[in-house]
Structure formats: structure tokens, C-alpha cells
Design a protein around this nucleic acid. Structure first.
Lengths: 247, 247
DNA sequence: CACGATTATATGTCTAGACATATAAGTCAA
DNA sequence: TTGACTTATATGTCTAGACATATAATCGTG
């Protein structure tokens, strides 16, 4: 994740289509502040005249800007540059194996513990389910170039993902397995900071009391819980990077 | 065939428009897993027949799904459900004052230090600029119901935001001021964990060595640096929550 | 079999219209 | 002044075509 990089999009002499040019023109004016928040964008019929095209073409450009939340369209009134209301950052949380190999480092994986059991009340609370089905509880560690990268503590709900019972988590990390076997999921991430307890410190090879970044991820698929996972990262070496989206 | 004439006219009973219904139908099939990643979506001409509409209508539905990264469109080949490749979570990082008042708590603000100076080499490195202009350096604290919420350490580039020279940061938090005076920005957030040093511990009223969540935000506007800010949150009480977006 | 040329086809973009609908703005009466 | 009614207008959706373009498949040749 390079700093401030995806603005530069080379691609020298390419002829963009008209609606893309219209969209980019408007986007540029907004981003540079030439058209500040609240500013009314020219009406569709004015843009038709300026670009000498049909209304559907300018409509497509404006619709995409509206879908991207850059402008707001109001019937009879016109289209307006949206007022910044909150920063919403897009945080890319990759599969850990993919993340490490993408960095050009050697991925290592150690299964610490894996057991299948009937959900305890603590398990049910953590998964947010009320009935006591079977679950898999996994503890494992990810490393990059043989340096501990993160420890993982996971619970998988077998009533949602029965195929997980046959997976070999000694060989494949559960996150990667799930990513390839559960098609589309929703998730909630909670990020916090703690200091390492003895067990975490040992697994990450850091000092007890050293800071750790903790990510709790709760994943479900159409109202059914898939998995709950807690990841500890060494806080002084690991960083989460979230890219913008002003407004 | 009984629906053959439902096209052009009265039909006031149907609320959602047709293209939205098409989009929702497809989205539902993807999200439930009925159409798994890699599955080819019916061709436009098939959807035209199924929904008895023109190609532009199904095209609009599919284009929006493509813009939302839910499907991938390939010429001659068709449209395909996208394979999950990374979890990208949307992290809402509100203006701190807005965040606290939204929680129904009393917002408090204390300016600790504010000085204007010519950028030192450290300032220039932090802002990512090469020329030595004027900057404002601010340290302040936010509190909720009189409990310390976060400490802020900020640098504002006056060559990008000259108006900031006249702002009264003793009264208004710099984040809020910037949000209302700099129209559209891009930003990069870096999240990490540290343990509190003496100064931070004192400001946050926590113990030295307690975990802190650190957010570094680097903000610019069309290639010009606006501000760089570092926020320390007490890690055991503060949590960042990022909601989903599977795939 | 390998490989380049050709073809078929699904998407990409665009047009010149149409009617629907929400609503800002103006009009008029109480 | 205020509230109810009317009108004008910008966007929302849709059609039935058109040509462009990338590329998967097929075909032909060495």
C-alpha cells in the first residue's frame, strides 16, 4: 500500500468515451474545489449543449457520480455537489496469506489447536446464535519470512458451513479456506488496541505488555453466522491502511 | 403472456422501477449464493426476454452492479459474479465532535498548544512537502462527558489552507474547522497500536503502558497537502467499527 | 499439432425521441 | 401572512434502434 499512489493513472493516449470525459470533467471541478459543496452543476440540457450529445449520455455521467456519492440529484432543482459529512475510509482487509505473499514475503502457517465441539454457551454468545450446534474452534499463527505476523483465534459455525468439517486446517489456513468455500459474506470488523498477555506474547514473540492491534471480525451470510475471528497483530510493526473517500 | 401489455402505461401498483427490480433480483441471487462466484449471469438479450424490456434497461441494471464490483463484465464472454478476493470494509471516521454528540454525550474540547512556524525539516517530512512554507502545529484534547476521548497532534499546511491562519482553534477544534472550510479531500488512514507514554497517559488520564489505538490521517486535496494528524485513543475503551462489504 | 486469420457475438456507447414524477416557484384566496 | 392550488421544469425511467470493439470460437493452412 503505497502512500498517495492510486491517483496517478498513466495510460497515455487513450481516447476516453464521451460520458467518461463528462464525468471526469465534473469530478475534477469538484475535487479541486472549483465547484464547492452545494454548488449546482449545470443542468442536463446545458451539458447536452456544451458537449453536443444526447441527454442519455450526460445522464449516464451524472448517474455514476450520484452512485459514487459525489453529487446529489434533486428533481426539479438540479444536481449539487455533496457536502462533506463524514470521512468514510475504505479499509482493505485481505486474506492474510494473500497479504503476505503480495508483500513478496514467505508465508508460514502453524496450527496451534483445532477442535470440534458442541457449542458452549460462550461459543453461542460469540457467534450470536441461540441453538447449540456443532462448532470448530481453531487457534493458529501466521508468519512472514518466519517472523510471527498474527495469531488467530476462530470459531466456525458448522450448521452454516457443514463442509468445514472435512477441511484440513492443518494444511490450509481457515481464513483462506472460508474465502474460497463461502461465496459472499458480510462482516463487521471491530478494531481495538490491547497489551499482550503471556500467551499472545509468546505466540507473537514479543514482550508481555507490548501493544497489539486486535481485529474482531464477525462474518455472516444472509442472516446465518459463518465465523467469528479475533486476530492479534504486533502493534508496533503492523499497520492497517485505509484509503480515503472524502465526504 | 398475460403480462404482455404491462409495459407502457397505467400500472400504478408497481413501485420500484424495472431496472431496480432487475438489479435487486440479481443481487439477491448473488448474495444468497444461488449464483456463486464465477457464475455467468444471463446475457442481456436473455434478460430482455425475461423482463420484456429493452436492452438499455437491463444494461443499466448490470452497469450499476459492475460499478458496485458485484459482477464483472467481459466483452463477448458475458457477465460474471465476481470472486471474493479481499474483504474491504468501510470504516466511518467521523469528525470527533460529531461522533461524540451523535452518541448523545457532551463534547468537550481543550486546546493544549497552538503555534505557527516556518516548517521544520521534520514538519516537511511529515507533510510530505519539499518547500518550507508556514505551518500551524496544534495539540488538543477531545472529551466526552468530561472523560478524555482522544488527544490530537496536528500539522496544517498554511500554503494549502491560508485561511487557517485566521481560525480560532481555541474555540473550534481544527478537525471541525477544516471539514467545513476545505471542500473535498482525500485521505489515507493508518491504524496502529502503541502503549501510552507519559505525556499521552497524562492527557488521556490512563496509566503509562496502557494500550492506545493510534490513527494517523494524512489529508490532501488535488495533490496539495492539507493536514497531517495523529490521534491517540484509549485502546481499552475505544473501538473502531467497520461494516462489511464482502468480496 | 501449432498458429495465424476470420467470424460470430456480447458488451460498450450513443441517439432522438417519449412519458412519468417530484417539487420549486408562482398564484390566489382566506 | 399563510395555506392551498397550479404550473413549470429538471430529473427518472424507458424504447427501439445504431455502430463500435474486444475477444471466444472456429476455420484454414503449414
Amino acid at each position: 500500500m503505497s502512500l498517495a499512489s492510486d491517483r496517478a493513472k498513466p495510460r497515455a493516449t487513450e481516447k476516453p468515451t464521451l460520458y467518461k470525459r463528462i464525468r471526469l470533467d465534473i469530478e475534477t471541478r469538484i475535487l479541486t474545489g472549483e465547484w464547492p459543496p452545494g454548488h449546482r452543476i449545470p443542468f442536463e440540457h446545458q451539458l447536452m449543449a456544451r458537449y453536443r450529445c444526447s441527454r442519455m449520455t450526460v445522464n449516464k455521467a451524472l448517474s455514476e457520480l450520484a452512485q459514487a456519492d459525489l453529487i446529489e440529484r434533486r428533481r426539479r432543482a438540479g444536481s449539487f455537489v455533496r457536502r462533506p459529512q463524514h470521512m468514510s475510509a475504505v479499509l482493505k482487509i485481505a486474506d492474510i496469506r494473500a497479504e503476505i505473499t503480495a508483500l513478496g514475503r514467505a508465508y508460514g502457517y502453524q496450527l496451534i489447536d483445532c477442535r470440534r465441539r458442541t457449542a458452549t454457551s460462550a461459543d453461542r454468545a460469540r457467534l450470536g446464535v441461540s441453538t447449540a450446534g456443532k462448532v470448530i474452534a481453531i487457534a493458529c499463527r501466521h508468519s512472514a519470512d518466519d517472523v510471527p505476523f498474527a495469531v488467530e483465534d476462530r470459531l466456525i459455525d458448522l450448521s452454516t458451513v457443514p463442509e468445514a468439517a472435512t477441511a484440513d486446517f492443518a494444511r490450509e489456513p481457515p481464513g483462506s479456506w472460508l474465502l474460497h468455500h463461502v461465496p459472499w459474506t458480510e462482516a463487521e470488523h471491530t478494531i481495538s488496541a490491547v497489551v499482550a498477555d503471556a500467551r499472545t506474547a509468546k505466540a507473537l514473540d514479543i514482550a508481555v505488555g507490548a501493544p497489539c492491534l486486535v481485529i474482531d471480525r464477525y462474518t455472516w451470510r444472509s442472516a446465518r453466522t459463518v465465523t467469528a475471528v479475533r486476530l492479534h497483530y504486533p502493534g508496533e510493526t503492523h499497520r492497517l491502511v485505509a484509503r480515503f473517500k472524502g465526504g
